[in-house]
Design a protein around this nucleic acid. Sequence first.
DNA 1: TAACTTACTGACCGGTCAGTCAGTAAGAGA
DNA 2: TCTCTTACTGACTGACCGGTCAGTAAGTTA
Lengths: 216, 216
Amino acid sequence: MKACCPIQKFIRRRRKEARPGEIAAAALDVFAEKGFAATRLEDIAAHAGVSKGTVYLYFDSKEALFKAAVEAAMMPAVEAAEALAGDTSRPAADLLREFVFGWWQMVGSTALGAVPKLLVAESGNFPELSRWFHDSLISRAHRAMIRIIEQGIAAGDFRPVPAALAARIVFAPMFSFIIWRRSFAGFMCDLPEAEEFLNQAVDILTHGLALREPKP
Amino acid sequence: MKACCPIQKFIRRRRKEARPGEIAAAALDVFAEKGFAATRLEDIAAHAGVSKGTVYLYFDSKEALFKAAVEAAMMPAVEAAEALAGDTSRPAADLLREFVFGWWQMVGSTALGAVPKLLVAESGNFPELSRWFHDSLISRAHRAMIRIIEQGIAAGDFRPVPAALAARIVFAPMFSFIIWRRSFAGFMCDLPEAEEFLNQAVDILTHGLALREPKP
DNA sequence: TAACTTACTGACCGGTCAGTCAGTAAGAGA
DNA sequence: TCTCTTACTGACTGACCGGTCAGTAAGTTA
């Protein structure tokens, strides 16, 4: 086999430890932009600065790479979200605000923001991955938010709304914003700033949940 | 070419007028489930009860079929939404509720509910289609909702919130619900009923927008 | 019922890409 | 500096699928 590379693009390096992480991160980027099926393994390899063969040294298949990329990216965020929800010593409205902004900082504003869009896009093709995503991420975050709202109701800060429904409604603006930003940012010139959008959302939601009369 | 069909699956019928609509509808179903790239033309053809060749009698390419399917499905809904928004004779809170439920009935609860998910999933691969979707659908609906909220502010029913932001926040629960239902319905056993979810969302949103003190 | 038109069919072609593996060279050890 | 191990490369293969078109038969006209 001949040595190609007439202009010696890059010096070859051996970095066994760093590769899997770099490849998974590159995969997340490319999958996020093109979706699973439309992504070519060679694009991911190029994006990670390796050849296609190297990808197959560390991952069994395209699908395995996809799962690994999603899991590696999301797990820390899940754990951080759980930890935050455990703190029940503060007013529910504060926790709600912190939850929304914390999620934005950890997921929405980073490369992880691609994951929800990706999972939505590929839910038909990867049912078990979708189930994993739902059970180990959405569900846990949802339960945490339910606890916050129930706490607010118990303290007399919030109206007695059905907490399970309200929790989903609180999530919706953030979720939608992440999706919109990833899908339509290019030509959605009126897309608001995350900060001001989420501030307004938290404001409307906490007003919407709050009791009209201050408790006696 | 030999005549195949040893068990004569179905009697061949010639129905030139009905085909394009049937094929586009079938395409929407299959695209919605699998995404654009992962959908095989033969699956669409089978779903529409014709052979692959017939699809190419009526549509130039897979991409043309995709666009035709999306446009045919969404256009009536856009026009109906615009018409509804023109009615400014009623209280803003009523219009808001009607807008949300009308959208659900026209889009979310029907096969059209697949379109938002589809557009999100394929936005990277079809930028012009995404732009068309945004400009001729999202934008128009957004402007209509802004008008409703500004009307509510002017009438003293709503707090003076930034209408452009609030409009997006009002859309978010409905949009999210459509996406969740389409992506995770199979195993999301705690997914609420649309009716009660949207009712609760409208309740929280209108409470959140409302002035605390009734105007004198 | 024969001759004709055309909606419809499905085998085939060519391009694309996931996955393979013989070959290459970076770096370690002596 | 030479040898050895193995991380890495990229040309290649086989499967798959979008798109084509020669062929078939449903329906129509005379």
